[in-house]
């Protein structure tokens, strides 16, 4: 069985690691998800979250150095009407996703066993198994790592925001006045850089767990190889008669939520909108393209058959 890690077991792991290198390296490997070469996923047990926002502040702390430092005034953009997006004066906004806030807590008041209860849900990038933000970036600025992380390279991104448009949850957030577009044709192409959760990829490479997981006092999140996380999610869902989100959404993601109430019910009561993702069912965005890709294999065959038929009919007429 692959080890999965919560904050407590991680702390325990670090203590044991002081005496045993073997343990720490196995935690590191599990955190990197490389033990069996499969993606790592996170499990979020919504029933445990108390909405304290420790995770939000931890995320802002460890990622502060990655946040945009835009040049002002912004270069004028053509045609007129192309809007700059500026969050640099609103860096303290924590009730939605912004370029300076990659994780926020959504809340939902629901009835459980006849009792009104407020559930709180940490929201960030889902790290899709086949992420359209990465696959459809026309510039190669978004990448997927073999441990299941998708991230946007701030030095390459031009801020066209296509990744946001094609993301079923509209996750990536734009800051104008920063990035490569300034060095190309800032008036005519690009509009900044897109930012989102990168699931603490540099911490994971070092064998550390993401900051939001480490900071949570309630052990809401668990991280580990995806199949192991899915197994745990199903056991957890069964134990609370609960529901799962993220296993099949958008063709599968590496972020698995377990909730005591159905997600369509949660979705109907959460605040949704810009920077505030929904919890609705999502079909696989890349499915049509990938089906057409399979059909594309037939194209050369059709060409050969066409030419052969013509050759055959000409030879027959000659006879």
């Amino acid at each position: 069985m692959q080890p999965t890690i919560t904050r407590r077991s991680f702390l325990k792991g670090t203590i044991t690691a002081a005496c045993s290198i073997a343990t720490s390296s196995s935690i590191a490997k599990a955190a990197a998800g490389l033990e069996n070469g499969q993606p790592i996923a996170t499990l979020l047990d919504i029933s445990k979250c108390v909405g304290c926002q420790e995770c939000v502040y931890a995320c802002r702390d460890v990622n502060a150095t990655k946040y945009p430092k835009p040049q002002k005034p912004f270069p004028k953009m053509y045609p007129n009407g192309v809007k700059a997006e500026d969050w640099s004066d609103k860096t303290d906004v924590i009730d939605r996703l912004t370029p300076y806030n990659w994780l926020y807590i959504q809340s939902a008041t629901v009835e459980i066993d006849g009792e009104q209860k407020e559930l709180t849900i940490p929201r960030r990038c889902m790290h899709c198994s086949n992420p359209p933000c990465v696959k459809l970036c026309p510039w190669g600025a978004a990448v997927q790592l073999d441990n299941g992380i998708s991230r946007i390279e701030a030095d390459i991104c031009l801020g066209g925001a296509k990744c946001q448009t094609v993301c079923p949850w509209l996750i990536p957030q734009r800051q104008t006045g920063v990035g490569l577009y300034l060095d190309i044709l800032p008036a005519f192409a690009g509009n900044g850089v897109m930012y989102k959760c990168d699931r603490c990829y540099s911490r994971i490479t070092k064998g550390e767990i993401p900051a939001c997981i480490e900071a949570c006092p309630e052990d809401v999140q668990t991280i580990g190889p995806r199949d192991e996380i899915l197994k745990q999610a199903h056991e957890l869902a069964k134990s609370m008669n609960g529901y799962i989100y993220g296993e099949n959404e958008n063709g599968g993601t590496n972020t698995i939520y377990v909730s005591p109430v159905p997600f369509d019910k949660l979705n109907s009561v959460i605040e949704k909108g810009k920077g505030k993702p929904h919890l609705a069912a999502v079909k696989d965005s890349m499915e049509t393209g990938n089906k057409l890709a399979m059909a594309m294999i037939l194209a050369p065959v059709a060409g050969v058959v066409g030419a052969a038929m013509k050759f055959y009919s000409i030879n027959k007429n000659d006879d």
């Binding site: 059909a295 594309m296 194209a299 050369p300 060409g303 050969v304 066409g306 030419a307 013509k310 050759f311």
Partner: peptide
């Protein structure tokens, strides 16, 4: 797909 089919067809033709 159409372009590939056409190109292959014209090549063999």
């Amino acid at each position: 797909s159409f372009l590939i089919a056409l190109s292959v067809y014209l090549f063999f033709d």
